[in-house]
Design a protein around this nucleic acid. Structure first.
Lengths: 207, 207
DNA sequence: TCATAATCGAAACGTTCGGTCTGAAAATAC
DNA sequence: GTATTTTCAGACCGAACGTTTCGATTATGA
């Protein structure tokens, strides 16, 4: 009955408005970490490319490692979700896997400034310096494998759950191997050939 | 007739003898970079773990990036060569591939201080900060693929060279995906299951 | 013994690092 | 208008960075 917001809702908070867009800033942080690596990315560079003053960065994100984790979450939502969603199910398992690897190669080669994958190429390195980041890496890896396993289980008789799990791990390993190869500058066409062979071989073996 | 070294060969050079073992020092550098990453490894830490004075390190290796490249070469010779040599040919293709992945998993999980692979997990990150390191990464990746391709071509009718090349790329991608997964702390048993499934599936599909 | 040559140990180099602080600026609330 | 609240710009902090320098040390060659 009574509105929870009696008067005009304060669309804008009290003080001076910020001169940057938080979403775009996080996208920029993703690009900096992705291109440069975690340890090699300086807070100065981050501030510049995020169009964000230093004080605001620390007030909003806490510190560099927290910002890195926020960037990883952003990357997962904006870049990895579309890749995982290509798994469908939309068509046959083989068609969906082909679509999945299409997206994998596209993500890893789309921008020549940021080859490879933020998680497979950058977080994997940083995981050596921080236990929290190692757990983060494990969680991100496991999430993709669970998504693949879920897709596989729709085309598999129940009971061979262990095999389905291993196959999900294998398909994810191929995806990461492709991401890594892209980091060295390998053209997309070469990676597509590898992905195509993977789908053909692994689907053929499954029957 | 006349000896090239007339008098007693100078086993020891002129000045003060070094107080460190260059080979062991390089092995220690491998461990530091492998555990910590390139950018996050400080020269202070390197000197301490290499049992090497700072001045000697710079006189012997030039600078940090050159030392990193020397450590990568050392790693390739001492750690990667045994893995590649497991490809034989010694037995059937399938047996040799099983031995190969056995070594891959062992390398990536043997020491819990240095999980994963120096090239796949550390150089791949550093490749984003230096064009020279990106080329180094590409060369190291290509070298392994060439070795696999060579092994495959012994069991393949000539002519489908492009397919053999793609299969080598795929087998290498699986190996790298496994290395990456080890970086997050995955137990060796899980990785062996993935590797076993890879060999079974890909060999089955090849006939 | 004395010159030569190499390494060692440590201090010092200037730079950059991640992080904090302060006062001016720019908005709303009253 | 004034008070309040938030952000901004930039100086500032001590610590750590990669690298260089230099005198002391410890060996060999003559």
């Amino acid at each position: 009955m009574s509105d929870a917001v009696p008067n005009s809702p304060p669309q804008r908070s009290r003080g001076r408005p910020r001169g940057f867009d938080p979403g775009a800033a996080l996208d920029a942080a993703v690009r900096v970490f992705w291109r440069t690596g975690y340890a090699a990315a300086s807070v100065d560079t981050l501030c510049r490319e995020m169009h964000m003053p230093r004080a605001s960065l620390y007030q909003l994100f806490g510190n560099k490692e927290d910002l890195f984790r926020a960037a990883i979450a952003r990357y997962a939502e904006t870049r990895l979700v579309p890749v995982a969603e290509a798994l469908g199910p939309r068509g046959s398992l083989r068609e969906d896997l082909e679509a999945f690897y299409q997206e994998v190669v596209a993500l890893a080669t789309r921008d020549r400034e940021t080859p490879g994958c933020l998680i497979s190429c950058v977080l994997a390195d940083a995981a050596g310096s921080s236990a929290a980041l190692r757990r983060e890496l494990d969680a991100r890896f496991s999430a993709l494998e669970a998504r693949i396993e879920d897709r596989l289980s729709r085309d598999t008789a129940p009971g061979d759950a262990a095999d389905t799990r291993a196959m999900a791990g294998l398909l994810a390993a191929v995806a990461r191997g492709i991401m890594l190869r892209a980091r060295s500058g390998t053209p997309a066409a070469d990676l597509h050939r590898i992905a195509g062979l993977a789908v053909a071989s692994l689907c053929a073996a499954r029957h």
